[in-house]
């Protein structure tokens, strides 16, 4: 009986346990599905709708990657992971790529042995307080009660910040964003600290967002991005250049609306031509075909479109582009050349 369940489900899932070799691309193709690790639920970044369809900023990257590799943005198995389980899942091969607002740090890169594919969101840890508190700077928060989400780098940053400034605080560790929000709104903590994007997203859903302010201090650098295991450079390349495609496409004005047209015949921009496969064979070099970038872009549009759709200013979350604007517009989004 025990075996029947395991074996039954094993074959049913097509999950024939072969040695997870180096060639992730082959595994993914053979499986016909991309296993993508995402958050268990974070407003704007990953959340399921009533039909169980996942959507969000982090999810969109997975869809683009699945479209590039498998030709189908819905050929994905989403594996929802907590802060605790995410690295183990990636290390053990349970997922092919982790796209779960994960900060790029040296230890994660080197000690935990992961390869970051780039940055899809430049974030930093900030503080949100009720306006009534009358505080203008984080340095005036001596003795305040601070809500933090555990299992992230935020609690370490927070401890550092208060230690360096020689002021005291009272931490309230919390598992999920939803609970942090509840405590903050009820006044159980004076300050809520997490990534600035998260703060904005949370504030947007308050009944009276105007009663709360986000303090100007950003106390850390949080470059968030997707990551894969060490040791499969081909797979890392595919993931990295899928991300670069999304970013570059925005720079060159390729959108989900005009991408078909631009891919039909060579345009005046050779870079776009190489990206969309009307010129050269960059796709083949990656181990894919010439249409990979086209498919990735058709899945959800370019970086700008994804941003606007899930977390941009017209969404309830209402994040400004800020650091995440294209480098041509004063931001940090800068894709290396397609050459």
């Amino acid at each position: 009986m025990k075996n029947s369940v395991i074996l039954g489900a094993l074959t049913a899932a097509g999950l024939i346990a072969g040695a997870a070799g180096a060639a992730t691309l082959d595994d993914v193709k053979a499986r016909g599905k991309l296993n993508c690790g995402i958050n268990t639920g974070l407003v704007g970044f990953a959340a399921p709708d009533a039909n169980g369809e996942w959507s969000g900023f982090d999810v969109a990257y997975c869809r683009a990657l699945a479209a590039a590799v498998l030709g189908d943005p819905s050929a994905i198995e989403f594996v929802s992971l907590t802060g605790k389980t995410r690295f183990t899942a990636l290390a053990s091969g349970e997922i092919d790529v982790l796209s779960r607002n994960t900060t790029w740090t040296l230890t994660r890169d080197v000690d935990l042995k992961f390869t970051f594919l780039g940055v899809n969101y430049y974030d930093g840890q900030g503080f949100m307080i009720p306006k009534g508190l009358g505080v203008g700077s984080a340095k005036e928060l001596d003795g305040a009660t601070v809500c933090i989400q555990t299992g992230t780098t935020t609690e370490l940053n927070l401890a550092d910040f208060f230690r360096v400034n020689n002021i005291s605080y009272e931490p309230v560790p919390i598992e999920t964003n939803a609970e942090a929000q509840q405590q903050f709104l009820a006044g159980a903590c004076d300050v809520y600290t997490t990534d600035a994007s998260g703060l904005a997203a949370t504030r947007a859903t308050f009944e009276n967002p105007a009663d709360y302010v986000i303090l100007p201090e950003i106390i850390s650098k949080e470059p968030l991005g997707p990551l894969v295991r060490h040791g499969d450079d081909e797979w890392a390349d595919i993931g990295r250049w899928t991300l670069n495609t999304l970013i570059a496409a925005e720079e060159y004005g390729v959108t989900s609306a005009n991408v078909d047209e631009m891919a039909a015949k060579p345009t005046s921009n050779p870079e776009v031509n190489r990206m969309l496969g009307t010129e050269g064979n960059l796709g083949e070099m990656l181990g894919l075909d010439g249409q990979w970038a086209l498919r990735a872009l058709k899945a959800g549009g370019n970086y700008g479109e994804i941003f606007e759709k899930h977390i941009g200013e017209n969404t309830p979350i209402g994040l400004a582009r800020g650091l995440n604007a294209q480098w041509t517009e004063g931001g940090l989004m800068y894709a290396p050349p397609f050459r």
Binding site: N39, T40, G41, V43, A47, A178, Q181, Q182, L185, E207
Partner: peptide, 16 residues
């Protein structure tokens, strides 16, 4: 776990 995921939906954020 699902209730947490549902609360992460922008429509239902803040429901307990």
């Amino acid at each position: 776990g699902l209730s947490n995921a549902i609360r992460a939906d922008t429509d239902w954020n803040g429901i307990v």
